[in-house]
C-alpha cells in the first residue's frame, strides 16, 4: 500500500496540476468541477475525473444505460490496482495522464472537459482515425478496451446489450450450426 501511495504522489507531481501548461489555466474561464459519482480509492481526483469523462464518452447512455450508470470507472480502478503488478499500474496511470493532457490541450480555446458530448465523441473518433498519432491512439485503444471489457462483463452489458450465455440462463444443449438470426446477437461469453 505504501508503494501505491508513493506512486500516487509521484504521479501528482509529474502529471498533476503543477505541470499543466499555463495556457490551459488561463483559458479555463469556467473551471470544470472535477467531482465524480463514485469513490476513488487509488486514483487522484484529476485521474478519476478523466477516467469518468472518457468512459462516459466511449459508452454514453444509449437505449441502454451507459458506462457511468453501470459503474465502469470504479470497476476499472478496482481491477487495475488489484490485478496489475506495480509497474503496470504505473504505466496505466502514466497513459491516463498523458491522454488527459493531450485531449485537454488539443484545442486552446476549449478543453476536452468543456466540450459537449458530441464534440468529445468527435475528438475521440478523430484520434482513432489518426494513424499519425500512433502512441496516443494506442493509449486510447487500450483504455477503450478496458472500458468495453468492464461494460460487457457488467449485468447490463452482458444481459441487455449482448446475448447472455452465463449461468443465470439455462440454454440447454449446445447446437453447433444455427442461423445467426436464431441467436440474434454476439454471445456475452
Amino acid at each position: 500500500m505504501k508503494r501505491r501511495e508513493a506512486f500516487k504522489n509521484l504521479s501528482l507531481f509529474v502529471y498533476g496540476s503543477l505541470t499543466l501548461p499555463a495556457s490551459s489555466l488561463l483559458n479555463s474561464c469556467s473551471p470544470v468541477s472535477k467531482e465524480v459519482n463514485w469513490n476513488p480509492k487509488y486514483l487522484n481526483a484529476e485521474e478519476a475525473f478523466f477516467l469518468t469523462e472518457i468512459s462516459n464518452t466511449i459508452i454514453p447512455n444509449t437505449e441502454f444505460p451507459g458506462a457511468i450508470a453501470v459503474g465502469v470507472p470504479s470497476e476499472i480502478e478496482n481491477y487495475i490496482f488489484n490485478v496489475f503488478e506495480d509497474d503496470k499500474i504505473q504505466s496505466f496511470r502514466g497513459e491516463l495522464n498523458q491522454l488527459d493532457k493531450y485531449l485537454n490541450n488539443l484545442n486552446s480555446n476549449k478543453s476536452f472537459y468543456e466540450s459537449t458530448l458530441r464534440e468529445k465523441t468527435k475528438i475521440l473518433n478523430d484520434l482513432q482515425k489518426n494513424l499519425d498519432k500512433k502512441s496516443y491512439r494506442e493509449m486510447y485503444i487500450n483504455l477503450k478496451s478496458t472500458v468495453a471489457t468492464s461494460y460487457f462483463r457488467s449485468e447490463v452489458g452482458a444481459t441487455q446489450v449482448l446475448k447472455y450465455n452465463g449461468p443465470s440462463v439455462v440454454l440447454g444443449s449446445y447446437k453447433g450450426c444455427v442461423p445467426l438470426e436464431d441467436v440474434g446477437k454476439t454471445w456475452a461469453i
Binding site: N165, L171, Y174, K175, G176, P179, V183
Partner: peptide, 10 residues
C-alpha cells in the same frame, strides 16, 4: 459463414 452461428457454450 457470416449468417451462421452456434447456440450455447460447448
Amino acid at each position: 459463414y457470416e449468417d451462421s452461428y452456434y447456440y450455447g457454450n460447448r
